[in-house]
Computed example of a mutant assay.
Amino acid sequence: MILKSVFDRTMALVGLLCLWPVLLVIWMLICIKMPGGSAFFKQKRVGSNGRLFTMYKFRSMTMHHSGSSISVAGESRITPLGAVLRKYKFDELPELWNVLIGDMSLVGPRPDVPGYADCLRGEFRDMLKLKPGITGPASLKYRNEEELLAKVKDPKRYNDEVIFPDKVRINRNYLHNWCFWLDVKIIVYTILGKNLEEEFLK
């Protein structure tokens, strides 16, 4: 996977150099519209082989809240500006820095908070061999995850019993079918807002 690593870091550097004006504007908007705290959100996430790392995102929630790690569309802790950032995935742009320094990949499973990785048993722990990614096949399928969770009675239970196991299955499939052009395809599909073929997700 040397090619994957070189591609990731090169594209992350290019992305940061090209998008710095966008990053600056978002940073300024957060400082103006969401004062009283940092424009960035930092949190420990589980990386490859279970190693913890600090993930960086733009802040999209109020500073002081006691919500769970499961986000649902329409929550009061998500600010109006934050809702826009989350809808178009602009809040995830700082993760390009995580890719550049080697904590993440452009494509891979989304990094979970500590606790979920501990639930993985047997062959399902294969998923931890992958670097977490900004996008991935499971991310494409569940791009509207927050809206989906808003429609169910118990979002956390639905996530734990339905979405999380399905994501693990899809990401293991990605691991065992990985090739460089698959990553390119996933990135293009992410930009276009398309899903992967259903046969890959089965």
Rank of each mutant, 00 (worst) to 15 (best):
T62L: 13
N144A: 05
I187Q: 06
K167Q: 09
S48V: 08
V25Q: 08
E123T: 13
F90N: 06
I191Y: 07
I101F: 07
I78T: 14
K194G: 05
G36Y: 07
V152P: 02
L192F: 09
S76P: 09
M11D: 01
E199M: 11
L19Q: 10
L192V: 06
S38R: 03
G36C: 02
V22N: 07
Q43D: 02
L201G: 08
P109S: 09
E145N: 01
T135V: 03
E75D: 15
Y88W: 11
S5T: 14
F7Y: 11
K156R: 15
L93T: 05
D183L: 09
V6H: 02
V14A: 14
S38P: 10
F53C: 10
L52R: 05
P137T: 05
G108K: 09
L182V: 12
V22E: 06
L120T: 12
R121S: 12
M127P: 00
E197P: 14
V14R: 00
S66A: 14
V152Y: 01
L201I: 13
T62N: 09
L24W: 12
S60A: 08
A150T: 05
K185L: 13
F7M: 10
W20N: 04
S66R: 14
C119E: 14
P114F: 05
L201S: 10
P80L: 03
D118K: 14
D183K: 09
S60I: 04
F90D: 04
P155Y: 12
F124R: 15
A39M: 00
V72Y: 10
L182P: 08
N144P: 00
W20Y: 14
A12H: 02
G82F: 01
H65S: 12
F41M: 01
I101G: 04
P111I: 12
V168N: 09
M104W: 09
R143E: 03
K44N: 14
F200E: 11
G136Q: 01
Y56V: 13
N98W: 07
I134F: 01
N159C: 11
L201C: 11
V14F: 13
R86Y: 02
K153M: 10
L201A: 13
I170F: 05
C179T: 13
P109N: 07
W97H: 11
V14Q: 00
W20F: 15
M61I: 01
V107R: 07
I32E: 07
V84T: 12
S66G: 11
D183N: 12
D160L: 11
W181M: 14
K153Q: 13
S60G: 04
D118E: 15
E145H: 00
C18R: 05
N195M: 10
D103I: 09
E95A: 06
S60E: 04
V25N: 08
S68Q: 10
A150F: 05
K131S: 02
L120R: 08
V168Q: 04
G74T: 07
R86A: 07
G193L: 01
M34N: 15
P94T: 06
I70D: 01
K33A: 13
L93Q: 04
R143G: 02
V46E: 06
R77I: 03
N177E: 11
S5I: 15
T54P: 01
A12C: 04
W20Q: 02
E123L: 13
F90K: 05
K89E: 00
N49I: 00
R121I: 15
F53D: 06
I186F: 10
I78A: 05
D126E: 15
L130D: 03
V22Y: 04
G102H: 04
L24N: 05
N49T: 09
K4F: 04
I163K: 03
K129V: 12
K202E: 14
L13E: 03
